[in-house]
């Protein structure tokens, strides 16, 4: 074990997943969320475009965990921003724009999904009341790190978690949100709830990984 660790060369994955492209003249690029939001509320269209461009992809990314219906996700984002513009002078103040939009987006997409289920009732015969928050690791991005079997193990472990646990993992690790922000998005009154749920989820993940029968993930990782 010891020797293996010594041979293990530490490398870093420099790949960044920064997909948002700002126009070079974006005057809000370096401004704080507070300033951007105030400008938007005051009717500044560049501020709106900045908010839109910097949040669109994240909302899609969050959305596909609820549903693979890209059109529905798009409709949801579209309607959210229409309402946001219409109510711009009336809405509250925020220093963290993206998590604020996540709160609204989450409510909206759940409503749209219920509506979609109601509309499709004739075909599917029963209404789904529960919506799955899916989360899965993709081999393509991380093939340098894990092989297909390992990813499958991880995904199996993830799939044993509850919807809420999966969603917390996404918000914490993927979006990098803080516990208070996660509590706002998920509607917890106590910040402690988010922290303990996340801890519980990760412990459960570890336990599943430890008991995985075929090809123990731990040993597989030590090439």
């Amino acid at each position: 074990m010891h020797s293996k660790a010594s041979h293990f060369k530490l490398t870093h994955d420099k790949e960044k997943t920064d997909l948002v492209k700002f126009p070079s003249h974006d005057p809000f690029k370096l401004k704080s969320d507070h300033e951007i939001w105030q400008a938007f509320k005051g009717g500044n269209e560049s501020a709106f475009i900045h908010i839109y461009n910097s949040c669109y992809d994240s909302l899609v990314q969050y959305g596909i965990n609820f549903s693979m219906d890209r059109e529905l996700i798009r409709d949801c984002i579209q309607d959210l921003f229409i309402e946001l513009r219409e109510k711009r002078s009336k809405i509250g103040i925020t220093d963290c724009i993206k998590p604020y939009l996540f709160v609204i987006f989450r409510r909206k997409i759940n409503r749209y999904l219920k509506l979609k289920a109601r509309i499709s009732k004739i075909q599917i015969e029963k209404v789904q009341d529960k919506f799955e928050f899916e989360l899965s690791f993709e081999q393509k991005l991380i093939n340098k790190q894990l092989n297909g079997e390992q990813i499958q193990q991880l995904n199996q472990a993830i799939s044993k978690l509850t919807n809420q646990e999966r969603e917390i993992i996404f918000l914490f690790f993927y979006e990098g949100y803080t516990y208070p922000q996660i509590s706002d998005i998920l509607g917890y009154t106590k910040v402690k709830t988010a922290r303990s749920l996340l801890y519980k989820a990760l412990s459960a993940l570890r336990k599943t990984l430890e008991t995985s029968s075929v090809g123990h993930l731990y040993t597989l990782l030590l090439f």
Binding site: M1, H2, K4, A5, F8, D13, E15, T17, L19, Y56, D57, V60, Q61, I64, L135, S136, F137, E138, K140, L141, I142, Q145, L146, I151, L154, I169, F170, F173, Y174, L209, L217, Y218, T219, L221, L222
Partner: peptide, 21 residues
């Protein structure tokens, strides 16, 4: 060592697949 490396690999994979827009 196992724990450190596993945690590190999991964090890498937590990047997920960025959705193409």
């Amino acid at each position: 060592v196992e724990d450190v490396l596993t945690a590190r690999q999991i964090l890498y994979s937590m990047k997920f697949m960025p959705v193409m827009v």
